[in-house]
């Protein structure tokens, strides 16, 4: 770009500036939380922490390391995320693939039924009763099965499958492959980008999910870490707000502990992004077919 025009240079500068602002805005909450989590309490209360930790200390993390419930929650979250993502991917794929085939009779009606669920659902109490009568309460299935297929994700995946050239499958069929073999050996390897994307969507959803576990679990040892975090932050706020005549049973959780817990909770799922990014490469299909 040695001879790039003046206008292009201006564009580049402005572009970079805008991007820097956007990056700063999205990054700042994390920086702020990280700074608080490494600061000593008195500076936080005086409102002096902005970018860098003041009175640097790792005490907060040391305290958190000893918190057994936090790590139980962490373990649970990891299990729920892995199992949930696996189930979701499997279910979504086996629904999306047939629906991508034009030769499937009644495809439109099935799709209509599925899309219907995007706009209407039974609501909280019927869902709860359903899960209860299926006997799923206090089991991992209560939070992994009911939402196994996200309609939106399924439609994206179906569109992707539709975009795969039909000739590939025809060729495989001529070579003697059955339907399932085609799905496993031909389609899935070609679908890594969409699978990675879906896995990421589902994993983030499962990681962040606190409401499902909150509804269906009654045992502390089953709570995911998000529920632990939710209770810590919203629970403490609630007591502060309900300022009636008496302040009983007060909750005082240091801002530093809240910040450290938040950081530790979001960090792992944040780290997944760079690893999945390599699948987002365009042109995986190049060279697969000569027309």
């Amino acid at each position: 770009m040695i001879n790039s025009s003046r206008g292009y240079k201006v564009f580049q500068v402005v572009n970079v500036l805008i991007m820097l602002v956007v990056i700063f805005v999205t990054l700042y909450p994390f920086i702020y939380l990280a700074a608080i989590s490494f600061s000593s309490e008195s500076y936080v209360y005086a409102g002096e922490v902005a970018f860098l930790p003041k009175g640097f200390t790792t005490m907060t993390y040391e305290v958190l390391m000893k918190e057994k419930d936090f790590w139980t929650g962490y373990k649970n979250t990891i299990v729920y995320t892995i199992v949930g993502t696996a189930i979701c991917l499997f279910m979504t794929t086996i629904l999306a693939y047939p629906l991508s085939k034009k030769r499937l009779k009644g495809r439109g009606i099935i799709l209509a039924f599925i899309v219907f669920t995007m706009y209407f659902n039974g609501g909280l109490i019927p869902n709860y009763l359903l899960v209860k009568h299926l006997g799923m309460r206090n089991t991992i299935w209560a939070i992994t099965i009911p939402g196994a297929i996200s309609t939106y994700n399924m439609i994206i995946m179906r569109t992707f499958f539709e975009g795969l050239p039909n000739e590939l499958e025809e060729a495989a069929m001529i070579d003697g492959m059955g339907t399932y073999r085609i799905l496993v050996s031909i389609i899935l390897p070609l679908s890594k980008p969409i699978m990675a994307t879906m896995a990421l969507f589902y994993a983030v959803g499962a990681w962040n999910n606190w409401f499902g576990p909150f509804l269906y679990f009654d045992k502390q040892e089953m709570f995911p870490v998000t529920l632990y975090l939710r209770n810590m932050i919203a629970g403490a706020q609630q007591t502060a707000v309900s300022s009636g005549s008496n302040t009983e049973d007060l909750t005082q959780i240091a801002a530093t502990v809240k910040a450290a817990t938040t950081i530790l909770t979001v960090l792992p799922i944040l780290c997944v992004y760079p690893f999945i990014q390599k699948y987002f490469v365009a042109g995986v299909m190049i060279g697969s077919l000569k027309e």
């Binding site: 209860k132 509804l215 009654d218 939710r230 209770n231 919203a234």
Partner: peptide
């Protein structure tokens, strides 16, 4: 026989449990 509910959303779960007979 303890049914543990996080304090942050105690009221909501209480309503749900009572209205579903649980």
């Amino acid at each position: 026989d303890v049914m543990v509910v996080p304090m942050s959303d105690y009221a909501q779960k209480r309503s749900l449990l009572i209205s579903t007979g649980d």
